[in-house]
Amino acid sequence: MIGVGGKIKQYSSVLDKPLSKGRQEVSLSAFAFLFSELVQYNQTQVDNIAELERRLEDAGYAVGARVLELFCHREKGNRRETRLLGILSFVHTTVWKVLFGKVADSLEKGTEHEDEYMISEKELLVNRFISIPKDMGTFNCGAFVAGIVRGVLDNAGFPAVVTAHFVPMEGQQRPRTTILIKFADEVLRREAKLV
């Protein structure tokens, strides 16, 4: 897009364009407004919270699928992670860093189940200006980010169920957001064979 000397080169197809470096930025408020519109629009399309979360997740999934393709090209030199821990740290480090400007606060393995992993963030970017009305219960806009994570994992060949939850923190006013990843059985079976 950015030509030299103010001249823009015309490309016949979007695929002919050089890949952007991803350094361009927009203001946080522009994103916050846009995200609030996404939530508001989807609110008009649904009649319960579960449905709303599902729609936000679907929107995120579409983002995740594209993020994976783009980052594998740009950040990883056309290599894609094939191991469970590799892809998890790709999400936790690379994806988070490019999208949100920082590495996620923590990546943990679930203590009760072998197939569960958690990515936690003290103040998730999308939840930053969001307060949930009392009557909306456990609704979490992080569903959008959960969708991104699911999009990345699914398209990398690691199907999983991904959900976003608020977890109250001691001594903190606002709860942190935990993205819970539960991998499909086949993923764990394959992983066991690979060792």
Partner: peptide, 11 residues
């Protein structure tokens, strides 16, 4: 404060 333009674009 700014955010990555790609996050914005894709959203």
């Amino acid at each position: 404060e700014r955010v990555n333009a790609e996050l914005f674009t894709l959203t």
